[in-house]
Nucleic acid binder design. Sequence first.
RNA 1: GAGCCGGUAGCUCAGGCGGUAGAGCAUCUGCCUUUUAAGCAGAGGGUCCCGGGUUCGAGUCCCGGCCGGCUCACCA
Length: 501
Amino acid sequence: MPLGHELLAQRIQRLREIQALGFQPYGRRYDFTHTIPEIVSRYGDKDAEELNPRVTVRVCGRIHTIRHMGKAGFAHLHQGGERLQIYVRQDSVPETHFRLWRGLDAGDIIGAEGYLFRTRTGELTVHVERLEHLAKTLLNMPEKWHGLEDVETRYRQRYLDLIANLQVRQVFLTRSRVIASFRRQLEARGFLEVETPMMQPLYGGATARPFVTHHNALDMDLYLRIAPELYLKRLVVGGLDRVYEINRNFRNEGISAQHNPEFTMLEFYQAYTDYRGLMDFSEELLRQVAVDATGSTEVEYQGQKLDFGRLRRLSLREAVLEYWEDGERPTPEQLTDPEWLKWRSTRATPGEALQDLFERVAEKHLIQPTIVYDYPVETSPLAKNKPDEPQFVERFEIYAAGMEIANAYTELNDPLEQLRRFQAQLRLREKGDEEAHQMDEDFLRALCYGMPPTAGEGIGIDRLVMVLTNCRSIRDVILFPLLRPEGPIGLAERLRALDGC
RNA sequence: GAGCCGGUAGCUCAGGCGGUAGAGCAUCUGCCUUUUAAGCAGAGGGUCCCGGGUUCGAGUCCCGGCCGGCUCACCA
């Protein structure tokens, strides 16, 4: 009989023993007096005298380690990312409670009532007088020393990863603080949080291939959104001058350490400002997010110090010139010369070639948080032209750790120019570019009613969290990253065999 | 999609040139009333990812597949 089965049989047997002792293997509510983090912060620095007269507490948590020693024993309970030791001795608890204690396993969730004391080695510990059983583990916990290291298991069974690896909990707490910080800051500046369609009859707002789904009752195909942009701008037309949305985008493209098919984006739009205004705003936002998430504007990423205290700013063309490596550095004029660009990229238009050049030459060097501004019009179908250089648009991206983490621009609000841009996209589409924009005539109609001058920005939450938590892979900041199915697990069958259900 | 690396006990990992599969933790039994990677004595536990092939013999060599990681490509 394989161990997995034998162990499961033992644990199932133990359920009956717990019941026979008058406890419930899966208990009901437990009215604790303190969480374990509360105990630690309140009594963690109290010495033995300060714990007299006795402080009685009721605590609960999951057993992580358990040390049985004949007629007594110790265990560490975990709750809320903190741990607390409990001490159970035969002559301090009712007999059935001690028998319950003898049958407890690492992984079980229990409640313990007793008084606080310091052990010989000085560790704050609950001297238990009553136990309660709250949940039985039927499966073995990962090893106490190494924890759960298998990357695949960590992603597939994130619950186990969270139990075994406390740092993982920290990453997701930080992620939550990042999002809360954005909400707080946007709220404070009068931004309204909205929700726009995730299922869209036309997709747009970014260059990407969509997921397609189908609505049965309406018998129509729908696209999972690749961006909320066109809906958010409709709202600005409608007079919601400051709106934002934090939600998932879906892009049917490759998976990598920086790409998950669904990812979380903050998009916000502010009327009556432009991309220069958003540069200043972004700087403030990111500085405060870094502080709220990590306590400092400086964070360490893969051995390098990144400073969100101030964002460096340089134009896309300056970035290409600065990081040029191969052969003779081009002149600024050459970077806008279609003939020169044609020979330096396989892309069809001068603007695409220039951006291609930027991505190849400069992107990987942009380690410190940096604003890169003024992008070619060909790659930015929704952004407003620069008045003095119409082949460029008022657009910037923010880079950190060599990754693009934000994209912003002065929004194109001229419907006639928008129509021309859509037509240019349609021509690309006809040439087989699946990522080119579709014509969205309702969006065009909205612009025809007049959209105030507006600037908008999207910030990739996952990537920003990677940088702030020193994670190398986007899968480490997404609780359940997309994986191929693992195949049959076989647990249901084993449980059925053991329980006869 | 391509290249490289990996998959061995519940977990973390060893297994030299092909010869009946190992450790620590966990589990079970006994001892142990302030331990903390508790300790001591004993025991059980394996579809070596799956399927073919070579061989007297395959965890090991070859081919195909599955799953994952990394690096590219694409992308944010």
